[in-house]
């Protein structure tokens, strides 16, 4: 079943002549873990904004085509309604935490939905627990590290029980270990909570083993779309200047020198296995 249906979507920001998106068609299935990537300014963030109604409600401008998310047309439903189905985690954790304690921050969205107090408390506790931040309940956002802040931001979204979670470069301000830990948590949500994930990211080397689909955009268009293994080793993607993981690049380089290693690898383990196979048995 599809959770996102985009048909012939074009959009330009108000006052800009150049369209940010042109003729995008996209279907996303429930349970997908999608990496959305592409060079700076390719339209990734714009596409995400279309998925929860920030476009066209917060950003006006010229929207053509249809965007149906969790059965709701974003044109006809306010962001506050879509937000109950689609969670959005932003790049800078600092600017998405408003309250003076973690607990109040998580409650913010639930309070907006006018849920009864007991229900809010239950959901806040659960979100704290899932994210492993119960000990931070009383802390103010400025007392937390970047990694902790981003966990809080995710807890805020989780508490609203979304069906789709969009994360726009959530690890830009984190160190690699904190980033990897965050990706692992997101992966668990995807598997155990059956949450559909759209993750905008440049750091493919840390990420591509988790995803079942990569979408690459360039100049407002979808340029490639498929399983990570095929996409990352394809020639046309190389020319787009995406941060292809080093192991995949090594595979491509070896292939160009006449050494074939089976399926394209997306992790160190995979290429190690292939090389071992090549050297030891044949």
């Amino acid at each position: 079943m599809s959770i996102v249906e985009i048909r012939n979507l074009s959009y330009s920001y108000p006052g800009l002549n150049k369209p940010a998106l042109t003729n995008v068609d996209l279907t996303i299935a429930k349970g997908d873990f999608i990496i959305l990537t592409g060079p700076s300014g390719c339209g990734k963030t714009t596409l995400c904004r279309c998925l929860n109604g920030l476009i066209p409600h917060f950003y006006s401008g010229d929207l053509k085509g249809d965007v149906i998310v969790t059965g709701l047309s974003v044109k006809d439903n306010p962001t506050s309604k879509i937000a109950q189905h689609v969670g959005f985690v932003f790049q800078n954790p600092e600017n998405q935490l408003f309250a003076l304690s973690v607990e109040k921050d998580i409650a913010f969205g639930l309070e907006n939905l006018a849920l009864p107090r007991d229900e809010i408390r239950k959901r806040v506790d659960r979100a704290l627990d899932i994210m492993g931040i119960t000990n931070l309940r009383e802390n103010a956002p400025y007392e937390l590290s970047g990694g902790q802040q981003q966990r809080v931001a995710i807890a805020c979204i989780l508490s609203m029980n979304p069906e789709l979670m969009i994360l726009d470069e959530p690890t830009s301000f984190l160190d690699p270990v904190a980033a990897r830990n965050l990706f692992e948590i997101i992966y668990i949500f995807n598997k155990e909570l059956e949450l559909t994930i759209i993750l905008v990211e440049h750091r493919l080397d840390l990420l591509c083993t988790y995803a079942n689909r990569v979408i690459i955009m360039d100049k407002g268009k979808v340029k490639a779309d498929g399983i990570p293994r095929d996409i990352l080793s394809s020639k046309e993607v190389l020319s787009l200047g995406i941060g292809i993981p080093k192991v995949t690049r090594l595979y491509n380089e070896l292939r160009a020198s006449g050494i074939h290693l089976g399926d394209p690898p997306i992790s160190v383990n995979e290429i190690a296995q292939e090389i071992r196979k090549l050297i030891l048995n044949d």
């Binding site: 160190d175 990897r180 993981p245 080093k246 160190v268 190690a272 071992r276």
Partner: peptide, 18 residues
């Protein structure tokens, strides 16, 4: 220092027996 080694280095470490 919470640094993840480069992929190429990780690969060669896994293949140390070769």
């Amino acid at each position: 220092a919470s640094v993840i080694p480069p992929q190429i280095t990780q690969l060669f470490s896994q293949l140390s027996d070769l």
